[in-house]
């Protein structure tokens, strides 16, 4: 066990955990931020997507010891009032069915739009391919990303 000082959603937080503990479980078990979801544990489904310095990563495969001073953003910290253009677009297009993967989808999409503010259908398909939606809301996700992109530009 060791102490780690982490910047999570703009706030410094200290945790005492094993150095190999994935950020997913640090967030869920220790910080009690459960919006980041466990889906596969091997970076194949994207349900656990968070940002490290704005870059989308699979938190199930990032050990706490590798985070260092990087700023961590989770779905809870994506916007102050749940009003990020992507969050609004997700509601506007009535995207969620079961809803479990959607936080990861939104976090991945936010990072995608950061790099490519005006993605084509193909850019979205490629950029979102690491995020599985078992309910199959892919066509709505694509529309919601386009709506958010339009609002942000």
């Amino acid at each position: 066990m060791a102490n780690y000082n982490l910047r999570i959603n703009g706030k410094m937080t200290q945790v005492d955990v094993d150095s190999d503990t994935p950020m997913l479980w640090v967030l869920r078990d220790h910080i009690k931020l459960v919006g980041t979801k466990f889906g596969c544990g091997i970076a194949q489904c994207g349900a656990c997507t968070i940002h490290l310095d704005g870059e989308a990563v699979r938190s199930c495969s990032v050990p706490v010891s590798a985070v260092g001073a990087k700023a961590i953003t989770t779905i809870e910290g994506l916007s102050e009032n749940g009003d990020h253009p992507l969050q609004k677009a997700w509601i506007e297009h009535d995207v969620p069915q079961c809803g479990y993967c959607q936080a990861g989808q939104i976090m991945n999409a936010a990072s995608l739009l950061d790099k490519n503010p005006n993605p084509s259908d193909e850019d979205i398909a490629r950029g979102m391919n690491g995020n599985i939606c078992r309910c199959g809301t892919y066509t709505r996700i694509k529309k919601a990303i386009k709506t958010a992109a339009a609002e942000m530009s």
């Binding site: 809870e76 992507l86 997700w90 509601i91 936080a103």
Partner: peptide, 29 residues
């Protein structure tokens, strides 16, 4: 009429809703 999912605002902000999100004092895993 098209009515949005009543839980959507909670889903898109990551609020605890699911079984895996259950947490209790003194709970083991």
């Amino acid at each position: 009429t098209p009515v949005g999912n009543v839980d959507a605002p909670k889903i898109v902000t990551g609020e605890p809703l699911f079984g895996l999100d259950v947490d209790r004092e003194g709970m083991l895993t």
